[in-house]
């Protein structure tokens, strides 16, 4: 890198010029504490501007920390105003790569900037590799798609509570719905499979055309769950999942409720279990008996005799249809 280390007047650094800005600006206070204690170990990289002054190429947080300490002059490596923008980005990436890994949101902003410069995803990928950041063209494409999504979604990806693939799956949603879903993920922090489950459930419900996803999530039925901060996150997720399931599968939910009610009446529990066929599609039920001795098995036999004569077992096996006339 062709850069001279100089002492630069902080008043001449234009922090509002964000041509090369793509990183998160968190932890400036902590960094300021460290700079105040040991000084600036790694000088930022600045570019001279044609009309005077400097813009930051690498080290926005360091410059901000120094300014917050009221330092009038700081050491910096300065590159010329004529330096190619792509090269400046590569310097910035290399500078960051030496200290920490860029998060998804930062990579997304970086790729968006570079794509404007390079034009193709392959060129972006090739530009990043020598700077120490490997982003295959397919991932570049994903970041470009993400860059067109609402800030709330991008923040979800940066904040690691929304996976990149789930975010991209939200492309087909309206802007308001995408923001609403990102909001739910921010509140509940579900895992990847849980994100997919929620998104699919909401999409299916909205697909019926009765209401939009954002209206649904803003309604009291959902928001009472997602916004109940006195309930822990895991429990809120379970409640949301249950609500979605019941709304998506109203007839199946009723059948399940009836089955478990009757099963309870049969007195099955502990080391005995009765399982229904998947979704009640098949007609074969499974009885599980766990036993440790012949006597134990005999006690099961007695219980089975009682269960076989129970009217609720007959009702279960008759598979009487719950009334669904209100549904269709």
């Amino acid at each position: 890198m062709q850069a001279e280390q100089e002492s630069i007047d902080t008043a001449l650094i234009d922090l509002s010029d964000q041509k090369y800005f793509y990183t998160d600006q968190q932890g400036i206070e902590e960094l300021a504490g460290s700079v105040g204690f040991v000084g600036l170990i790694s000088p930022p990289v600045l570019q001279a501007k044609h009309k005077g002054g400097f813009r930051v190429v690498a080290g926005f947080r360091r410059v901000s920390a120094c300014i917050s300490l009221n330092l009038e002059q700081i050491p910096a490596r300065v590159i010329t105003a004529e330096t190619d923008a792509l090269y400046c980005f590569q310097v910035s990436v290399a500078d960051n790569a030496a200290t920490r890994a860029l998060n998804m949101g930062e990579q997304c902003s970086l790729v968006e900037n570079l794509h404007n410069l390079c034009g193709t995803k392959e060129a972006v990928s090739q530009a990043l590799e020598p700077a120490g950041l490997r982003v295959p063209p397919a991932l570049v494409e994903k970041f470009i798609r993400l860059s067109k999504m609402p800030d709330e979604v991008r923040q979800g990806v940066s904040g690691n509570y929304l996976s990149l693939n789930t975010a991209l799956d939200m492309e087909s949603l309206s802007r308001a719905s995408a923001i609403a879903v990102a909001g739910v993920f921010r509140k509940l922090r579900p895992g990847l499979n849980q994100q997919r489950e929620i998104l699919e459930g909401l999409r299916d419900l909205a697909g019926r055309g009765e209401t939009s996803i954002d209206s649904m999530l803003e309604g009291p039925e959902f928001s009472d769950i997602t916004d109940s901060y006195d309930i822990d996150r895991g429990r809120r997720f379970s409640l949301l999942r249950s609500l979605l399931y019941r709304k998506r599968y109203p007839a199946l939910s009723r059948a399940e409720d009836a089955f478990y009610r009757r099963k309870k009446n049969l007195g099955i529990g502990g080391d005995m279990d009765l399982k229904p066929p998947a979704y009640f599609e098949d007609t074969v039920y499974t009885m599980i008996l766990r036993f440790s001795s012949a006597r134990h098995l005999c006690s099961h036999a007695e219980a089975l005799g009682r269960i076989c004569r129970h009217p609720d077992l007959e009702a279960i096996l008759k598979r009487e249809i719950e009334d669904t006339s209100d549904l269709y």
Partner: peptide, 13 residues
């Protein structure tokens, strides 16, 4: 629901 043959079908009732 996912039926026995792997195809999606309306809930049987």
């Amino acid at each position: 629901i996912k039926a026995m043959d792997g195809k999606m079908r309306y809930f049987k009732p």
